[in-house]
């Protein structure tokens, strides 16, 4: 089948191509998003270190804090937009901290979700 473009359609295609010629949008992620359903399965006073690793995978960082073992999981999202001369890159992280007592049982879970507020923007000025 042969494509037939009217003058108006051709002008629209050329116009759109020119308008988008200086535009770019991209996204990058560091680590996979943290599964929200797995987080709800973690119960304070019940879940063990091994069970947490089964649910969430290996932590990015393990620390000893205030006599407790601490697992730290994080996920970063980057959203970038460029229009002609202007670029903006927004980055945010989701962090999950899981504290364990000396018996290896979850004592506290702290979770944050900042990546849901990351926007694609291109204008670099202002807040």
């Amino acid at each position: 089948m042969r494509w037939k473009f009217g003058k108006l359609s051709r002008a629209a295609v050329i116009g759109a191509a020119l308008a988008l010629a200086g535009c770019a949008a991209s996204r990058a992620d560091l680590n996979p998003p943290l599964p929200a359903d797995a987080l709800t399965a973690i119960k304070v006073g019940q879940t063990t270190e091994a069970q947490v690793m089964t649910l969430l995978g290996q932590p990015e960082l393990i620390k000893g804090v205030d006599g407790q073992l601490l697992f730290h999981y994080y996920h970063y999202t980057l959203k970038h937009g460029t229009v002609l001369l202007f670029s903006r890159i927004n980055i945010a992280s989701d962090d999950i901290y899981i504290f364990f007592d000396k018996q290896g049982i979850v004592q506290n879970v702290i979770a944050g979700n900042r990546t849901q507020n990351v926007k694609f923007q291109f204008w670099p000025f202002g807040s």
């Binding site: 200086g22 970038h80 001369l85 202007f86 903006r88 890159i89 927004n90 980055i91 945010a92 000025f125």
Partner: peptide
């Protein structure tokens, strides 16, 4: 994250003679 961004920044601006790039991590 910043290392990744700094590595990308010159590439993003390479096509135009003038570029303004703003990068933010968290609000």
């Amino acid at each position: 994250a910043f290392a990744l961004v700094l590595a990308l920044a010159p590439l993003l601006g390479a096509c135009t003679p003038i570029v303004w790039t703003r990068t933010t991590i968290n609000q």
